[in-house]
């Protein structure tokens, strides 16, 4: 099963909408509740990263009997140093974004904690792809 959701860069009033849709689908499919809770944290953080940093993005959800794989691809500035971006507390968010309570440098660490496998590929001035996989067993 595969679902796709658009993510609008810069539009904070819609941040979380795609994650919310995925959550609804997973609930309808009777995916284990504790698993949904983990996945949702990772989804939301990845979605907010697109909203806060990129111009536009897409969330692709692939669901099989063994795993859920979510790929978030954006067109945006990219991440020059992924290991630095993974460090808790490191953020390049703007002051306005920080004032809203985002940009604490917890997004990527939160994603890592809440999925089983995380792959990030990024090209500066082109965009970033974040692929997270969570296994059902």
């Amino acid at each position: 099963m595969e679902f796709n959701f658009n993510i609008e860069g810069g539009n904070f009033s819609h941040a979380g909408a795609a994650s919310s849709e995925v959550k609804k689908v997973l609930k309808q499919l009777n995916v284990d509740v504790s698993l949904i809770k983990r996945i949702v944290v990772a989804l939301y953080e990845a979605e907010v990263n697109v909203v806060a940093h990129a111009y536009e993005g897409m969330m692709k959800v692939v669901l099989s009997s063994d795993f859920i794989e979510v790929t978030i691809t954006d067109r945006g500035p990219g991440i020059p140093d992924i290991s630095l971006a993974m460090k808790e507390g490191y953020s390049t968010a703007s002051p306005q974004v920080r004032e809203m309570g985002f940009g604490a440098g917890m997004g990527l660490p939160n994603i890592k904690k809440n999925c089983d496998k995380l792959e990030i590929v990024s090209k500066v001035n082109e965009g970033t792809t974040v692929k997270m996989t969570t296994f059902f067993s």
């Binding site: 904070f12 009033s13 941040a15 979380g16 909408a17 994650s19 919310s20 809770k37 944290v41 939301y44 953080e45 907010v48 809203m100 309570g101 985002f102 604490a104 917890m106 997004g107 939160n110 904690k113 809440n114």
Partner: peptide
């Protein structure tokens, strides 16, 4: 900090904050 709440708050808790914008509802 929204990511802190996202990462650590649990279902059924009462969340105390000074943030008032729409993202707190997400």
């Amino acid at each position: 900090l929204l990511s802190d709440v996202m990462g650590n708050a649990k279902e059924g808790q009462v969340w105390i904050t000074l943030q008032t914008h729409k993202n707190i509802m997400a």
